[in-house]
């Protein structure tokens, strides 16, 4: 298409204008809210309380950051989330790979049945209350394991991993088997090194899920020492609705700048991961959906 230098009609120009108008609209709508948050986070309270645009900071004041960073609860929940994300991602990726590998083997008897068994769970689930009762009966309330176990495997990650394994030629496996390798060795030594793109995709997927989750904290954990970042953030953002009462009972009152500073700090890891998310995610999604 590019090489054809055909005179543009009026219609073509209209399409071009619409297309670039969409680009500008998208850029503005994504940037504005973030700019507002960042600006508030590093402005002095006096400027924030004054009405007006807060898109570009004209007075800098990082007291919001220093206040939130001196809050032990904030760092404690940050650490909880980091532990959760690291351990949880490792466990989830391991189990997903172990499960996906046998299912990628066409010779495995009952493979279709097991796949159905897994896909079924993507459409039907017990829902909030039965899951809560299960967790309660297992004694996982107020237990760190509640962050790791219930969300261990997702059907979606499992399927894209399996689909990727299926694209690896079987001849590789057969030659290794001739040399006496077991199925596990074949997975570890041959499949895994070839599957780095999909492993990166699902690892990022699980990691972001762990980083962002807060519902399990709200439902299953009431012990403040086990709070994860997003839930603590939620309580911070919600605070100040009744400032007088909170001050009376000695709770730290979070100013608008502190809230936004906490929000920005919670976003930093995601922003750091973003280039990788971009790189692997689209590829992983496409590879995975081709053979869905």
């Amino acid at each position: 298409m590019k090489k054809n230098k055909i005179r543009k009609t009026k219609e073509d120009y209209i399409v071009d204008i619409i297309v670039y108008a969409i680009a500008i609209l998208v850029a503005v709508s994504i940037l504005l809210p973030f700019m507002q948050v960042i600006t508030i986070s590093m402005s002095p309270a006096s400027v924030v309380n004054r009405n007006g645009f807060h898109l570009i900071p004209h007075e800098f004041d990082f007291s919001g950051y220093s206040k939130i960073m001196s809050d032990d609860n904030f760092w404690h929940s940050y650490l909880n989330t980091i532990i959760r994300a690291v351990v949880g991602t490792f466990l989830s990726v391991s189990v997903t790979i172990l499960t996906a590998y046998p299912l990628s083997k066409t010779k495995l008897p009952h493979r279709k049945g097991i796949m159905l068994f897994i896909v079924f769970t993507m459409y039907f689930s017990g829902g909030m209350i039965p899951t809560y009762l299960l967790i309660k009966n297992l004694g996982l309330l107020n237990n760190f394991l509640v962050y790791l176990l219930p969300c261990l495997v997702t059907g979606f990650a499992l399927i894209i991993t399996r689909n990727f394994f299926m694209t690896i030629p079987e001849a590789l496996e057969e030659s290794a088997k001739m040399d006496g390798a077991s199925n596990f060795t074949v997975l570890l030594k041959i499949y895994l090194p070839l599957a780095t793109p999909v492993v990166a995709t699902i690892a990022l997927w699980y990691c972001v899920q762990h980083w962002n989750s807060w519902m399990d904290n709200m439902l299953y954990v009431s012990d403040q020492h086990l709070y994860v970042l997003q839930y603590l953030l939620q309580t911070i953002l919600n605070s100040g609705q009744t400032p007088d009462m909170e001050q009376a009972v000695g709770i730290v009152v979070h100013t608008e700048t502190m809230k936004m500073a906490a929000l920005v700090l919670s976003l930093i890891p995601i922003v750091c991961l973003y280039p990788f998310l971009q790189k692997y995610f689209i590829k992983g999604m496409i590879v995975g959906s081709v053979k869905g």
Binding site: L98, P109, F117, G126, I129, N183
Partner: peptide, 30 residues
């Protein structure tokens, strides 16, 4: 076939057990 591929089933075990415990058990809870 099972004797030949028993270790494939072994790899499958943790995942399948998880689905039974955390996906199917709550369905019974309905």
């Amino acid at each position: 076939k099972f004797r030949r591929d028993w270790d494939l089933y072994l790899l499958l075990l943790p995942g399948v057990l998880w689905f039974l415990a955390f996906a199917y058990k709550p369905m019974l809870g309905l």
